[in-house]
Write a protein that binds this DNA or RNA. Structure first.
Lengths: 190, 190
DNA sequence: CGCCGAGTTGAACTGAATCAAGAAACGTGG
DNA sequence: CCACGTTTCTTGATTCAGTTCAACTCGGCG
């Protein structure tokens, strides 16, 4: 059994979680992507949410021609073109596999149908949304108050393995600083 | 009838909206606050969501002794100490009435009970959360890519009345710039 | 071997913060 | 309704973190 448990939901009652998994299980589809593959392309409506089993992916978009990373997702976390998935409109995000990656995908339609039939699961979708909302609010505070150095330090302590797995340019744009600055900051730590 | 309709929900089917209002109506409590009053105080758990009928409020917190505005809410919008309301823990936010303000409050407990009894409403909570999530994501992009001047211009066109109603210091901290810079930026426009 | 992408380093520049001092507006009590 | 104190806003001078542009290094890989 593919018992992927999203970090956002891991604090749930194991019994409920089990129930939840059983009901979602039939919706799971497994997909694989080779390093560099485009999992989702901008301009399309994104109909899936991707739960990463193995590997790492990033969502990015182009701003004035520059490639900007909006989100990384490694094992046990999820990724989708959130603008499109929520609003059912064309997405400005691309999603790219940064390593050979396997993911469970669930379609928007399947979730919708399941929720229509079993509205009690709306609750877990809500918990999930609440959690990603809190994450985003934290990121805003980061951008507002922490210097390039502090932002690097924070990710260094909260998610050190990420630094080994993604390249400097992607991380820099995610942190909202230039690659050169990130390189200099990093140099101070070794 | 106090037909407050949140901006986030105004696109719903009028029939459903009506139904929704009818079920939520009994949970509504009306409160009034005089200018300057603290609607919610940091360190406490925030048990209510506030739907502003008249007036304007802001959520703020202290960062290194400085007063930082995280959110404004005027008529037809909502405010709460979101960290606390979602996670049921002590809040770092204060909420303050910037004008004489009347609001409808709904308690967390009442929402929870209603949702337990009528899980079909989870859906609307979700829609609401999705919307505020999108708003937040937009704000991140703003912080990453727009200069002080551009951020001012954006709010000037999207929400011009706000500029008349809140003072410069509050707006500056919301935009993530110093009051002096905001003053200079504004001077260029008149 | 030589190319190519990724990372580093240097130098000049710049938007915005900070510090400091005044000016304007606001409201409260006499 | 004016006077005074407080808060809010403006303006100037200085400083600084981070950007940009450009050149260079390094490690694979065809």
């Amino acid at each position: 059994m593919s018992s992927i448990i999203l970090k956002q939901l891991e604090h749930l009652d194991p019994f409920i979680l089990d129930q939840l998994l059983q009901d979602f299980q039939p919706l799971f589809q497994h997909r694989s992507y080779t390093k560099g593959a485009l999992i989702h392309q901008e301009g399309h409506i994104c109909n899936h949410i991707f739960l990463i089993e193995k590997g790492i992916a990033r969502a990015f978009y182009y701003k004035d021609g520059k490639d900007i990373t909006a989100h990384f997702a490694a094992e046990q976390t999820s990724i989708t073109a959130i603008d499109s998935f929520i609003q059912r409109k064309q997405s400005r995000y691309n999603i790219e596999a940064l390593e050979d990656t396997t993911a469970i995908t669930i379609s928007h339609q399947d979730i919708q149908t399941l929720l229509d039939n079993k509205p009690q699961y709306e609750r877990y979708v809500r918990l999930y949304l609440e959690q990603i909302y809190i994450d985003l609010a934290e990121r805003i505070e980061d951008l507002l108050f922490h210097s390039a150095k502090e932002r690097y330090q924070k990710i260094l302590s909260s998610n050190p393995s990420l630094l080994q797995r993604v390249n400097l340019g992607h991380l820099a744009s995610y942190l909202g600083i230039s690659q050169e600055t990130l390189s200099r900051v990093r140099a101070q730590f070794s």
